[in-house]
Design a protein around this nucleic acid. Structure first.
Lengths: 105, 105
DNA sequence: ATCATGTATTCGCCTTTCCGAATACATTCG
DNA sequence: CGAATGTATTCGGAAAGGCGAATACATGAT
């Protein structure tokens, strides 16, 4: 039995995947958790996480593009904060599953 | 002020990111939702989703590696099912955030 | 054993992602 | 206007991810 031609992928699902992709990097996960409840500016994050400032900026741009964080400028510094704390809940759920995966090995 | 050398990345966070990475593809998202409450075999998924069977198999291998799905063979067919339905909840949370992102544009 | 059905893997190619290094841009102060 | 501080971007290369096509592997029936 042959499989019919693939139809164009649902745009919403593509965006869904892109949002997940924004979560799929260890440094970005660290950044999101670091921002939870604590708006921080870029070099503050860089020092806390021991990540070079340009790298932090690049990751923040990715998170901003997916509207996971928002920024406001205060003098020369730019402060970032979470736009929706539910993203932390989603990450926590995945983390719980991860812990079980490790336990059931 | 110079940033100190980066320390080795927390292994748990690396795995956390890998788990998110497994969610970061539209076809895998489709597969996970298709499996929600309905164990399916490979070519059933392929037909439902209009995706070539080898492609489905490759994505299922990735999901299996992250223990998001389990498989059991029944004759020549292999049935897959979700290992933990909370992954759907995590995806749903991300989806809600996505819908708001689209609305607030 | 052979065939039919269903599943998994390999190969080659292309695209995407990530990083370090360097540099450009923005804001405030003197 | 500099100079100082803080942030963002670009470039080049390396690594990872995805796909179509072809093929190999596994199971059950005849």
């Amino acid at each position: 039995m042959t499989v019919p031609n693939q139809l164009p992928m649902d745009e919403l699902t593509v965006h869904h995947a892109k949002l997940c992709q924004a979560l799929a990097d260890p440094k970005r996960i660290q950044i999101l958790y670091a921002l939870d409840g604590h708006p921080r500016h870029v070099s503050g994050l860089a020092e806390d996480l021991n990540i070079p400032q340009p790298t932090v900026s690049r990751h923040l741009r990715i998170l901003r593009k997916q509207a996971l964080v928002t920024s406001r400028r205060d003098g020369p510094a730019v402060y970032y904060k979470l736009r929706d704390r539910r993203i932390i809940e989603a990450l926590n759920t995945v983390h719980e599953i991860l812990l079980e995966n490790i336990a059931n090995r």
